[in-house]
């Protein structure tokens, strides 16, 4: 079955991204397809490569990046939510005249249309938020 996942809270403050990660891993292990993971609201903050969690804690961004590489996951960060919160990829940083970008490997920035498209194309849509 084809699943679409929404993550709508940021890492560490909320458990949402951890729950989504555990769910995605379990779904993949059962042979389901994860068509897309869409990060919205503060969920976009999961995709910054500049976070430095303590060594003895889970590394949320790195977990997602590794899972995406292993399973060719499509991790999409909402551009409108990202711009509000200072998440930029290289193209967008250049276009907006910013001096840095911070998107982690395995994530891409795109529009809200990707969320709707995910809902249309997936058999099930599940949101992890607060």
């Amino acid at each position: 079955m084809k699943f679409g996942i929404v993550v709508s809270e940021g890492p560490y403050t909320h458990q949402a991204s951890d729950s989504a990660y555990n769910f995605v891993k379990a779904a993949l292990a059962k042979g389901h397809e994860i068509a897309r993971v869409f990060f919205y609201h503060d969920g976009v903050n999961v995709g910054t490569r500049l976070s430095i969690p303590p060594q003895d804690d889970r590394q949320i961004q790195k977990q997602w990046t590794a899972l995406a590489a292993e399973h060719k996951l499509d991790l999409v960060i909402c551009i409108a939510a990202a711009q509000r919160r200072g998440l930029l990829d290289e193209n967008e940083a250049t276009r907006q005249g910013k001096d840095a970008n911070n998107i982690a490997e395995g994530f891409r920035i795109s529009g809200l249309g990707q969320l709707i498209e995910m809902g249309i194309q997936c058999d099930r849509t599940i949101t992890f938020g607060d």
């Binding site: 919205y40 809200l112 249309g113 969320l115 709707i116």
Partner: peptide, 19 residues
């Protein structure tokens, strides 16, 4: 909280998809 505002943004974008 921002949820209401960003929900509305989704509704507006979603309207273009003829669902």
């Amino acid at each position: 909280t921002i949820y209401a505002q960003e929900s509305l943004e989704v509704v507006l974008i979603g309207a273009a998809f003829d669902q």
